[in-house]
Amino acid sequence: MNSATTTAPLLQITGGYKTFGHVTALNGVDFQLYEGEIVALLGDNGAGKSTLVKVIAGVHQLDAGELRIDGEAVHFRSPADSRGAGIETVYQDLAVFDNLDVLANMFMGREHRTPRWLGPLGYLRNRQMLAAWKTASAELQVTIPDPRQPIGLMSGGQRQAVAVARAAAFASRVVVLDEPTAALGIRESRQVIELVRSLPERGMSVVLISHNMEHVLQIADRATVLRQGRVVGNAAASKENEHRLVSMIVGSPQR
């Protein structure tokens, strides 16, 4: 699918190891994401997908192993570090701030403000942000009737669309999505899927967690399957490989 496989991966984890008390969440994970790729992370509950995503997002730190970006080892001590490296993450249920409007959600932590020397006490430039939102939402084809409406009053699909749009607008390298279509209706899922599928054209690579095999086969180039904290296989995300991927997920012998 892509020709970049000969160069260093955009994002690479080697020997990733992470424990929580007695539970080993990641047990020597090797993971690669190449430029312009959409990689699906598959695996049963507790396979380590979410932990891996949180390591990439800077929420968790590896106990052992390495995280490299463009071949350079990096240490994310906080989510802010990860965002600073051009990585944006959309979490399944923590994606948005229900009590705030679309605009506030879109620019959370990156608000336009003035004057500079006042720092966070600076005045919010809402009109400027509204204009920026209009440009970004038109480009990403996200339609929200009123961006000043509290996001808590919107449907799951609209909320998720805003969360993905936020990630797409601010990520420069990687967008990580944890179950972006869970709990969405069919039509709403389709909108979010189209949005995700358009990201590589905009110069972003995607890591996607989804339980929905149909969606994965639709959008992803490649699938990495985790089981019990280890990568048990990589395969192109194509219809022909569906049975192979499912047997890797559940751990049954391949036919």
């Binding site: 965002r83 993450t89 923590l94 994606a95 932590g109 600076g122 005045y123």
Partner: peptide, 24 residues
Amino acid sequence: TRTQWGRWLYALGGNPEGATRMGL
């Protein structure tokens, strides 16, 4: 209502875990 810090107050109260993950 008019400053970035004020907006962060509401964000932190509305979704503390989310605020941490957004790097506030």
